[in-house]
């Protein structure tokens, strides 16, 4: 099919991947950062897929009812916060497995969202506005790719803040200590359960905000197939990013760009084997996971209290 490839096809595909990286990565970024915080405290919350979907639905409903998309974002965060807090509370009880509870919350969150989201499939809610960073280029494709939602910058700023806070603040060190060694934290007089409860709740808040991006910006409407597993992939991205907030951003961007590969290659005429290209993000994740799992550094970076590493 090479004969139908146009001039500048490579440029088109690259621009599409740049745009895709920026557009698609934001929800991954928020969920991954939320999960990163939770896992740093020594607990896994697999239920963030549920928080993401519920956040998407609440954000859309909130924006529709109040007329303000940013109010929707806030409501979405709060919905995530409540789910995260519930997860944190249940995991505090003796002999509760956080992974099992997480799976339950995944179904609970999506079920709740489908149930209450019914009346909001049809109406059109006000959406978040983008910042136009590329209009000066004079190229409509670049201008489109560089239409960036403010939440993207919020996510990047949050990652930098978390990276700094984990090293330099008392709170950051307490979270890390709880995650690496609960006995040490107890010896210091820190309430392990409280730290994990808060970390899970705040992590849920971030996932909820990620959901708001899905329904209020890109693709920008509420329906039941909206997430299609993005929350789960984001949890995997945290391991892929080896629990580093800055690497979470990189991983999300890479994942977004790889996801744009399938459609953009087909649009420039490379249409054979699109199933393979559509699977590119997952193949990429698999390769990097295998590569990074072999290094001893990665084993050292995993929080010691995680039930998967114990």
């Amino acid at each position: 099919m090479i004969d139908v490839v146009q001039d500048g096809a490579v440029v088109t595909a690259l621009i599409a991947m740049l745009g895709g990286a920026i557009r698609v990565s934001t929800p991954f970024m928020f969920v991954a950062l939320g999960e990163c915080l939770t896992e740093k405290s020594g607990r896994i919350n697999l239920g963030l897929e549920g928080s993401l979907v519920l956040g998407a639905m609440i954000a859309y409903a909130g924006s529709f009812l109040t007329g303000s998309p940013w109010a929707g974002v806030l409501f979405a965060g709060c919905a995530g916060l409540v789910l995260g807090a519930l997860h944190g509370f249940i995991c505090k009880l003796p002999k509760v497995n956080d992974i099992a509870v997480g799976i339950a919350f995944m179904s609970f969150g999506t079920g709740l969202a489908f149930f209450f989201g019914k009346p909001y499939i049809q109406p059109q809610a006000p959406r978040l506005e983008a910042i136009h960073l590329g209009d000066w280029t004079g190229d409509h494709r670049l201008a489109q790719a560089l239409e960036v939602n403010p939440l993207f910058f919020v996510g990047v700023a949050l990652a930098v803040f978390m990276w700094w806070a984990f090293r330099n603040t008392r709170w950051g060190l307490i979270v890390r200590m709880t995650g690496d060694s609960a006995p040490a934290a107890k010896a210091m007089g820190v309430s392990v359960d409280l730290v994990r409860f808060l970390a899970t709740a705040v992590g849920g808040f971030m996932a909820g905000v990620g959901g708001a991006f899905l329904s209020l910006y890109y693709p920008g409407s509420w329906n039941q197939g909206l997430s299609s597993g993005q929350g789960l992939m984001a949890v995997a991205l945290v391991i892929f990013a080896r629990w580093g907030p800055l690497r979470c951003i990189l991983a999300a961007l890479l994942f977004g760009a790889a996801g744009a590969l399938g459609p953009s290659l087909q649009s420039v005429g490379i249409s054979q084997g699109y199933y393979f290209f559509n699977a590119a993000p997952y193949i990429l994740t698999l390769f990097i996971m295998v590569a990074s799992a072999r290094s001893k550094v990665s084993a050292r970076e995993a929080p010691g209290e995680l039930s998967i590493t114990k």
């Binding site: 088109t12 996801g259 399938g262």
Partner: peptide
């Protein structure tokens, strides 16, 4: 939905 939006953007870009 996300891939449908990506595909739409890619077609317009093309």
């Amino acid at each position: 939905p996300v891939r449908e939006a990506e595909a739409t953007n890619a077609l317009v870009d093309a």
